[in-house]
Simulated scan of single mutants.
Amino acid sequence: MTRTITQAELRNGSAGVMDALEAGDDFIITRNGHPVGELRPIRAQRDVATAELKARFARFAAAGAAAEERAEIDAVFGEDRLDD
């Protein structure tokens, strides 16, 4: 849920804003009635192992034109591959 609060509300109620951020709320901060910024909770990122990424994207290599596209990209940018 996105809530709009003033600069003064942010300053005076920062503990409540932090609690709401932890609960997943978003905020638009206004100054003199004009939006000046956003506050959003940080979403946790999950580390993914290289092997898992390779497995996830392996199906794309099987697409019909993938080999030709990869050759074109390599021709333009050069080959800079990790061990396939």
Score class of each variant (00 low, 15 high):
55 A>C: 00
2 T>V: 14
78 G>I: 03
61 A>F: 09
76 V>W: 06
61 A>C: 05
66 A>V: 05
65 A>H: 10
40 R>C: 07
36 V>R: 11
38 E>K: 13
56 R>V: 06
63 A>H: 12
61 A>K: 14
29 I>W: 03
58 A>R: 06
73 I>V: 14
67 A>E: 14
2 T>W: 03
9 E>I: 06
54 K>M: 09
5 I>C: 02
68 E>S: 11
58 A>S: 13
19 D>H: 10
46 R>Q: 14
17 V>K: 04
5 I>G: 06
65 A>N: 13
58 A>N: 04
21 L>W: 04
47 D>C: 01
81 R>D: 13
45 Q>E: 11
2 T>I: 15
16 G>S: 09
64 G>E: 15
35 P>Q: 05
7 Q>F: 10
59 R>P: 00
17 V>E: 06
10 L>S: 02
19 D>C: 03
15 A>T: 12
30 T>H: 04
57 F>V: 10
40 R>G: 05
76 V>T: 10
13 G>M: 02
44 A>G: 12
37 G>R: 08
43 R>W: 01
50 T>D: 15
12 N>W: 05
24 G>Q: 09
40 R>V: 07
42 I>T: 14
67 A>Q: 11
21 L>R: 02
34 H>M: 03
14 S>I: 15
76 V>E: 08
57 F>R: 03
44 A>M: 09
40 R>Q: 11
63 A>E: 15
31 R>I: 02
38 E>H: 12
